[in-house]
Structures are given as structure tokens and as C-alpha cells.
Design a binder for these strands. Sequence first.
DNA 1: ATGTAC
Length: 490
Amino acid sequence: MKEVGKDWKTILQKVDDWRWLLPQDYKRGMRVPGLIYASEEMIEQISGEEMAIEQVANVAFLPGIVGYSLAMPDIHWGYGFPIGGVAAMGLEDGVVSPGGVGFDINCGTRVIRTNLAEEDIRPKLKELVNQIFRDVPSGVGSEGLIRVAIKEMDQVLTKGARWAVEQGYGWPEDLEVIEGGGALPGANPEKVSRKAKERGAPQLGTLGSGNHFLEIQAIDHIYDPEKAAVMGIHSVGQVVVFVHCGSRGLGHQTCEDYLEVMEASARRYNIHLPDRQLACAPIRSPEGQDYIGAMTAAANFAFCNRQLITHWVRQAFARVIGKDPRQLEMHLVYDVAHNIAKIERHRWEGKEITVCVHRKGATRAFPPGHPDIPVKYREIGQPVLVPGDMGRYSFLLVGTQRAMAETWGSTCHGAGRVRSRAAAKRLLKGVDIAQQLERRGIYVRAQNRALLAEEASEAYKDVADVVEVLHEAGISLKVARMRPIGVVKG
DNA sequence: ATGTAC
């Protein structure tokens, strides 16, 4: 399986310090070349990610793909498509593929700011983390604090975060700073299976497991004070909350349901695939439309989930700090998806075109002036929230015109693994990760302590290196860096 | 990512 010794530096053509072309003739059948954003060091270390580069080539086989099969610097192997991959398919001649979105539909991130300083919460940090650990259930199969009837689920799937706000979980203005207003149009709850709804209903307001987390962070460095100020970030030490989670069992089940549909449709529409995990259907086909309707509904579920979590986080702060969340200025900064496919208008080779942009482990990064970003961010560009690992950093960035021109307005989604879960566990056998982090002032509560080794810094690239590539390549710009002080994990 | 294999 693994092609040992392939010399990628002779195959990939260096475009500049941050861009590497995978030529279209690398594999017969590629409709477009690949383009990988990475530093020279990352390309040299790419030997562990050979399968991911192979997947960049495979995605280029898909009908209707426009421009390039793109990969971000956090690229790693995924189901069919690489994680950290971006591919746009023409609306009329292109396909949509569940593998290009991922199992966790609308896995994404959100940042809530506060007006607290690190020293304000240090004395109550453990209490605060413990309270959140109780109110935001985490772990595989965890169930939330609210009960939603199956028939109510169609409302959740259509209204997304708006449903939560209507129920009293959140502030109306939260919706203005969520991608798509927290309720993407085109959701079709009828196309989400009963099984998916039954799995998802009890999980609303839960974090999940794996790399999902909720962190209390302190602003560690501000690169662009003016843009940071627009986001309500004013000083080093300011406390924010970073949430990373998705659509739980509902999205997973939806992906599974449609992979089965799409395997049949790829055959029916005679689509030649180098890997059956790229199963897809024409966007204009009934199967394609059904998947888009269901996937969009699942995306709305994830927005609703992160909204409910926000409510419980505000409540936990209020209870422990003893002040109203409004007094604490716990405003939502932004909420953005990094596993999604969306129909968008873009300019390509001088023409306006409509494409289905698959972002799998990739974040939308729209530029200043774009009509789809909130009015308050219109001048600075769309906020991009990039999680790192629990021992290092996370970043706040903004989208750029260059991203719009080159990557369909997209950027990376995180640090990306450098070690498999198994390898990380082997390396850190016998190490008490929670204790190690606590010595560094990071208080961790985890549902499953064995998971901490798999999620330790050693398992990930340094997100600062990844972000450097984006910044230097100009597809997003650094605004601020955060470091974790309290962590809740599945 | 995930009722981590119904």
C-alpha cells in the first residue's frame, strides 16, 4: 500500500517558497493538476503523508473539477479525499462527494470572547473547567442536557443555530457572526434518515470525542491590533473560549447513508474513480441533490450544537465568576465550518462561475468586502479560527483576496497530525499527559484519559508552522494567537 | 470523526 521511498521533491514542482505543483501528468486521468501549500521543510517531511498526496491526485480525477486539486499545509490522509483538501466542481458538469466533506459534517470551530483577564480567572480556573465539563457532556455517545423530540428535529435541521436562539439558548446577535447565519439555505430534513435523527437528537449540546475540544484560552500575542479590535480582542491575557466540534452521530450517520447511495450512483452515471472512497454523483442528479439537502441539514445541526454549547459555557462562567454573561461581554466572535460542501459564486479565468466547493478539513476564508461575511467584518475579512493542540496554540486569522483568487476562498483547518493515534500512544506510554500540562498551568478534564496521548502536542504539527505558510502565501493573515489554560476533552 | 464492527 505505502509506496516507500517515493521522492516527492522530484515529482512536485516548486512554484515558490509556499506552493508546490503536482503535475497533471503524474497520473493518467487527472483532469487538473494538484497544488499543495507547504514549506520546503513540510515537503521534506511529507514521506509520512504519501497517501495524502496520492489522494490529491485522485481528487483531480473527479468530473467537473475546476483549476486544481488543492491541499493546505495541514494535509493528511483521509477517507477518499485528503483532510486539508479543497476541490471545486462546476455546477453543471461536476460531482458532489460525501468523501469530500468528511464523516463529521460541519465539524467546525467557534470563539467566544470575554472581558476577563487571565489573572481574573486563574483562582477559579479549575472550578470553571469542572463546571463546563459537567454542563457540556463529552465523550463518545454522550448525551446532552436537553431533550428534543424526533419531530422537532426537522426544525433544528432547517433553522440550525436560529432554533437554539429561539428556544432561549443564545443571543440573537450570535447569528450574525456564524457562517451562513447559522442556518444554511437548502437544508432538506426529509433526506436525513430517521436513524440519523434518532442518533443526533439526544446529542445536541455535546462535544464528542477525538480531536474535539473546548478550551479556555488566553490571548498570547496580537499580530494585527486593528483587526483584533474589530473582533473584540484588545489585550494579551484576555480570556476567550474556543470550541471545536461537529454534527456528532447525526452527521456521521448521514455520511454513511449517502456513501452507500453514491457507490451505486458512481456506477450508474459511469464515473471512473481511482478509489471507490471517492464515490460521488453529479450535482444535478437526484442523488447529488438529496445528498446536498441532507448534508446541509446536518451542517445546520452542527451550528445548533455549537450554539447550545455556547449557552452552557455562558451559564458556567456566570455561575463560577458570579456575573451575568452580558456583563462579561461573552460575545461570539465567529463560527466557521471546516467540513462542508457549498454552492458558491467565484471568478475563475476572468469569468463568474458557480461551483460546489468541497472543503474537507479546510476553512472558508472570504476576503474583505465579500457580501457573505458579517457587516462588522466587511472591512477586515472573514475571521478564520484555527485550532492547534492542547499544549500549544490556536490562531485567529482573516481571509484574503488572494485566497479568493487561488483557493476558492479557503485556508487550513488546524495543525494536522504528524503521528497516528497508535504511534502517539506508543511514544507516550506511561506519561501522565494531564499532569504534564497542569505543571505548565493548563488544567485538563478528559472523559477518557487514554485519549490524551493521542491528542498530545507530540501527535501534531506545530500549528504555528502551518499558519506561517498561510500567512506568507497570503491566503490568510495572522491576527492573534491564543494559548490554552483550561481544556475539556472527550 | 463514530453507539471506534450490528
